[in-house]
Design a binder for these strands. Structure first.
Length: 240
DNA sequence: CGCCAGGTGGGAT
DNA sequence: ATCCCACATGGC
């Protein structure tokens, strides 16, 4: 029942915005299969290389509480300095890395986070063959909280973890679907799919697209200061 | 100018 | 457990 409402909202958002082509691979922008921003042209697809995977993970950290446009600049800079090569990043001093990622903000903290996650990835050999880390192991890494862990797992490793971010909470709160006091795990559980075809890959596709649609909707209509005129899900607002 | 953005860790209560 | 704060740039 409630689950159906979330599914209805998903379908309404999808009808309005269409497939988002996440996660964007910035350094692939303009190459076959990607648009000028690095979004996949043909719907969802899985990372094709360990380079894509590493860039997704780096981007997930850089975009913490920061706009994607700032992150795009940083990814370009890093690429030009070979810092999207895990081994190079690993051997770069934190302060040197910080100066390169300056445009993403929190650069001292993020430089430290990037160094630490890179060590983790290299030590566990997670970049080759998309050998996925466990969620709890990612969460134990300094700088990786639940949202970043789930972004990495969902978009990098194609694991069925729904991402809860400020946009998700804002939209669900405005729909009176949640109070806003729920824990991260409680919110994540709302999106569990109970269908006969609850196959992992189906869930991954659904979670992948749903989160991307939520972000798109939050940027277009459900902003901090909401723009309700023309909102594709306004009929669900204010009702239980 | 002020506010906001695809959070997280640390410290005090 | 829960609140509060530091962390920082670039866009509007």
């Amino acid at each position: 029942m409630n689950e159906r409402k979330l599914d209805l909202i998903y379908r309404r958002l999808y009808s309005h915005y269409g497939p988002r082509g996440w996660w964007p691979i910035r350094t692939r922008a303009g190459t076959p299969g990607f648009d000028t921003k690095g979004y996949h042209k043909n719907d969802f697809s899985i990372p094709q290389s360990s380079q894509d995977l590493f860039e997704i993970i780096v981007g997930a950290i850089l975009t913490q509480n920061t706009t994607w446009t700032n992150v795009e600049k940083t990814l370009e800079s890093m690429k030009s300095q070979s810092l999207l090569e895990p081994s190079y990043l690993h051997d770069t001093k934190t302060e040197d890395l910080a100066s390169v990622i300056r445009s993403s903000g929190y650069y001292n903290q993020k430089a430290k986070k990037l160094k630490i996650i890179t060590s983790f990835l290299l030590q566990g050999d997670y970049l080759n063959n998309s050998h996925s880390p466990e969620r709890q192991d990612l969460l134990a890494v300094w700088g990786i909280g639940p949202e970043t862990a789930d972004s990495i797992l969902l978009y990098g490793f194609n694991k069925p973890y729904f991402i809860i971010d400020t946009y998700t909470k804002r939209i669900l709160r405005r729909l009176h679907y949640i109070t806003g006091n729920e824990s991260y795990n409680e919110l994540q559980d709302l999106f569990i799919i109970e269908k006969n075809d609850n196959e992992a890959m189906y869930t991954v596709r659904y979670f992948n697209e749903y989160h991307a649609l939520i972000v798109e909707h939050a940027k277009n209509f459900c902003k901090k200061k909401p723009v309700c005129d023309g909102c594709p899900i306004s009929e669900f607002c204010g009702k239980r």
